[in-house]
Design a protein around this nucleic acid. Structure first.
Lengths: 161, 161
DNA sequence: AGTGAAACGACCGTAGA
DNA sequence: TCTACGGTCGTTTCACT
């Protein structure tokens, strides 16, 4: 870490990612199972070098390679975003909500809601149950439900365009 | 497709996924690059059989294996959910919003907003620009912004618990 | 749909610049 | 941090069930 010679580092001291690593990420956003050799050919690096950089990127949490699924095709036909008003420690309340299995996405926001939570359920019965559960959580003042009618865009390839 | 012998199919006629395929998906949700051989060992199937099922699952859009990145670590420090009220054909309006590069997630909802859109930006300047752009889209009546303060949960492993 | 086997290619550790 | 190389393991194709 103390010295650098002819080559740059995967991430600079400030945590920025160089163009080569971005190119590698693009390759893996297109196909998470693309071989390191093929990626190396595309970005102009040896197979081993690609492997090292992918390792660092995943270890540092910049990137993860995972299967993402379509809830509808797996039988989860009810999705909703919940806008939540809360009191006291918003992070603590959000973490309690995030602890529920049916919540896949939860964050603290600035705006007329304090917390947003996305829930994925099999049916209306499940959705009602999880909503009731969230309303019962300590610190939750109110919830408003936005039922998903039609998903128009969902992209995972961020930071590389 | 017309006959079945001793083995089941990857997806039933109604589109449901059997338990073996779910087990494969779980493996790939844990690690998208896990070898077919290792998955086969875990789920009790040969490598070739695992590969065939993965192929079908990805071809049919039930699953995709991709790199997902952390916007913050890639220099995109401003995220927000926009609650949008719109008129006329909501799908058409949502698709126009979805066409913007900075929008990574966009859907039509039932509730006090007609459309929800998540935007990922490098800075406040970009965020303001994209908000202005969305407000200018035909059919958009109003937008309300929920700035992201703290992401507490983001899970990709859906449909397999 | 699944199995098994053989040829091929990818992956991984190590060494050296 | 990169390239180079060899051993090991995964992948692919094919014939068969």
């Amino acid at each position: 870490m103390s010295t650098q010679h002819s080559h740059g580092s995967v991430s600079a001291a400030n945590g920025a990612i160089d163009d080569v690593s971005k190119a590698i990420i693009v390759q893996l956003q297109e196909d998470g199972r693309r071989s390191y050799a093929a990626i190396g050919k595309a970005v102009g690096l040896s197979e081993a070098a690609v492997r090292q950089r992918v390792q660092k990127l995943t270890d540092s949490g910049v990137m993860q390679i995972v299967a993402v699924t379509d809830p509808l095709q797996l039988g989860f036909s009810r999705q909703a975003m919940l806008g939540i008003k809360a009191e006291d420690d918003l992070v603590a309340v959000a973490d309690r909500i995030a602890g529920l299995d049916q919540v896949d996405y939860c964050l603290v926001t600035a705006g007329s809601f304090d917390i947003l939570a996305e829930v994925i359920c099999e049916n209306d019965h499940d959705l009602l149950r999880i909503m009731t559960e969230i309303r019962g959580i300590e610190g939750v003042l109110s919830t408003e439900t936005f039922m998903y009618l039609s998903l128009r865009k969902q992209e995972y390839n961020w930071g590389t365009r």
